[in-house]
Design a binder for these strands. Structure first.
Lengths: 162, 162
DNA sequence: CAAATAAGGATAACATTTATCCTTAATCCG
DNA sequence: CGGATTAAGGATAAATGTTATCCTTATTTG
């Protein structure tokens, strides 16, 4: 059970977009170059973000993407679910219903106990991702990344942002 | 990102095995019939449990599986990881290293901040699963399942247990 | 009008999951 | 001892999902 690599790509792209000045846009091409990713396929991840309403787009030269909200309003969970989908990791096929000892037409009152427990674990995962915003990430990155690399990247981005 | 259905199968099988009297074994065939599952493929899931040391096996007629520990020593996490593997759901491909603004040969000091956050969410998921034992599940099932079905299933199992 | 862009459809390569079949070695029972 | 039953595991195939590429369309900029 592994998340799509598009999740990783979307998170990194949002991290870059969160440093973009107000009203400017960054293209798929620039984001793909910056991360060494296939432009066409990265585009699908960005489209998912767009469909989820997390980013805004413009067309034409100088077009591209920018965040639809401020970084402290955008959570990891929103980004992950935009790309990966909001479904649960545990799918209950209700195999208890195949138990030959059950009376015919027997109807369960509640979801399977095993599924309920697995879903609680899913919810713990989601709760953690919901608690972290892009702004939080920005603070961590500011400490992680050497200032000169951070600055160089920022200038590289600004040069390409429409 | 969906867990293998074998995870569901393994959990249900362990739930049944946890009700088995001391020293008796239940075969793949019986477990497959009880849950309406393909015997040969279910066998792979049970082999995973065996390799992880969660169940004990015997060969020959009257052979099969029983738990290697008491139900209150066996956690959901152990069962899930035996089948699904213990890896993380988020794989970091370190795409930040592709950033053209980095000096050549630059070496990161710590894992990517995005990966660290995603891994914390994974750990929250695992922590929840680690906190629930088969004994806990048994208590919930005892309340969920009507006594006559529970009793009928138990007798069905005992009739087939070696 | 020409170039650049996002959006999205079609398709293919690749990996994983799901399943089936077969062989081997061990165990039980008559 | 011999036949039946079982777990273990290898080989293979079908089904599904992920990753990737290509192409068309509509929009925007200059």
């Amino acid at each position: 059970m592994i998340l799509k690599s598009q999740v990783e790509w979307a998170l990194h792209c949002c991290a870059i977009l969160s440093g973009l000045p107000e009203g400017r846009y960054l293209s798929t091409k620039a984001l793909a170059e910056l991360h060494g990713l296939p432009k066409e396929y990265l585009s699908k991840a960005l489209q998912s973000l767009s469909q989820a309403g997390l980013v805004l787009t413009t067309l034409g030269p100088s077009g591209g993407y920018r965040l639809a909200k401020t970084p402290n309003e955008l959570t990891f969970l929103e980004i992950v679910e935009a790309v990966e989908g909001g479904g649960r990791t545990f799918v209950c096929n209700n195999i208890r219903a195949n138990n030959p000892c059950r009376p015919k037409g027997y109807c369960e009152s509640s979801p399977c106990a095993i599924a309920r427990i697995m879903w609680e674990a899913d919810e713990a995962w989601r709760a953690k991702l919901r608690s972290v915003t892009l702004a939080d990430l920005g603070e961590i990155l500011a400490q992680d990344i050497p200032p000169d690399i951070w600055k160089g990247t920022f200038e590289w981005v600004l040069k390409r942002a429409g």
